[in-house]
Design a protein around this nucleic acid. Structure first.
Lengths: 220, 220
DNA sequence: ATTTTGTTTAACTAGTTGTTTAATTATATT
DNA sequence: AATATAATTAAACAACTAGTTAAACAAAAT
């Protein structure tokens, strides 16, 4: 169910639809929190952008803070599910690591909202991500897959760097994240929008090349 | 003059010191805007953390917005000045590019405040960086130096990638920026704080290796 | 028919917050 | 020393905010 579906299906069959109501609140809240942060978002504004009322937010989520945590948890869960659909089992390590880099690249481009939520969390020292549970971390499929590919590549003698999955993930994510999240200042400062469609394939290949060359080269 | 100096020198010699007052307001405002963003920062709070009063902010800066733009301009100017002290003129390209990567790495670690300001600007679509002038972009020394080193490296036949200074800068900055700015969620998610002192040299060398291996390798 | 669950309307209440008015005092100028 | 200018302080304003809840009502479920 998308937000649009949720909005249009209203009133056609059921006057009441708690699942739909909850879903729409969560979807709108995610956008608002991603754009303005926890403190900057307004419960009034979130309610106004749904087909329900402010009272419903409190009926289902209890408080602004609990709504915020719910959007974080939902967003993390969505990422986890997306990652679960990737399969690099039967690929050679070099092809596999490039595919994982490109997957992360695409994921960032397809879901800037998540990156914005994460960015806001960091601006407030990740106080809610740290406090609440329910965030997949080390259990994330991407980490597991990176671990397997790295092990495979080292066993095959094609990867020579002493680096683990978390640091490879940081290398890949940092590039993808920066391109999306810092596009505005980068464009303002340097006159080049890194998210411009015509440059997309350049950067997609670039992060793949960067990771492959780094892992396959030898430490001096 | 540091903030501490500005605070302690008060009242010892001069009861009035417009330069000191302006400086302290700007320094405190930079911290507040970096931590809370333009909308999140409070003029009251900024004033409370200085030795002056709220009225002085309006006396010298006119409005919250003009104060914010002043902090942005000052921060960008500080970066420019820092970059001016780097010299890679007489180094071979590989050594030079590694040194530039490490310089950027160190700069991010030494000045997290600037990265936070930039991050907040991006969360609001860089509306103030875009609107105001006075931000060095393409004129930044780091870009000029990268251009020279890349040209030199290609002339020498050691760099084989078709990539310009802006994209190399993005590759380097993204890693350094992410490590600092996303440390909180990264630590919360994966149990590893990338800014932990003991790992510093690993990452510092890593970004150098990444850039060198990428530039010196050949496109397939 | 009755209970439970979902929804709407509206109010509250305590506080916020950028900005300005006006008075005061230190320093510079003549 | 007298005057003018620049720096500083204290206090108020005024419109608005914003998360939360009370109370009543209506649709589904039992």
């Amino acid at each position: 169910m998308t937000i649009e579906e949720a909005k249009t299906t209203r009133d056609e069959q059921r006057l009441r639809d708690p699942e739909r109501t909850k879903f729409e609140i969560l979807a709108v809240a995610t956008q608002e929190f991603a754009n303005r942060g926890f403190a900057g978002a307004r419960v009034d504004e979130i309610a106004a952008k749904t087909r329900t009322t402010k009272r419903m937010i409190y009926y289902y989520f209890g408080s602004k803070e609990r709504l915020y945590v719910a959007t974080l948890e939902k967003s993390y869960e969505d990422i986890r599910v997306t990652e679960q659909n990737v399969d690099v089992e039967n690929l050679d390590p070099v092809t596999a690591i490039r595919l994982l880099a490109e997957f992360t690249f695409d994921r960032h481009e397809a879901n800037p909202t998540f990156s914005r939520l994460v960015s806001h969390e960091n601006m407030q020292n990740a106080q809610f991500v740290t406090a609440a549970s329910g965030f997949p971390g080390l259990e994330r499929p991407i980490i597991k897959m990176l671990e397997q590919v790295l092990e495979h590549g080292r066993a095959d003698g094609v990867f020579h760097r002493d680096i683990d999955a978390l640091d490879v993930h940081m290398l890949i994510s940092s590039f993808c994240f920066f391109r999306i999240n810092n596009r505005y200042t980068f464009a303002a400062n340097f006159g080049r929008d890194p998210v411009e469609a015509s440059r997309r394939s350049i950067y997609r290949q670039m992060i793949g090349d960067v990771v492959v060359e780094y892992l396959t080269s030898s430490p001096t």
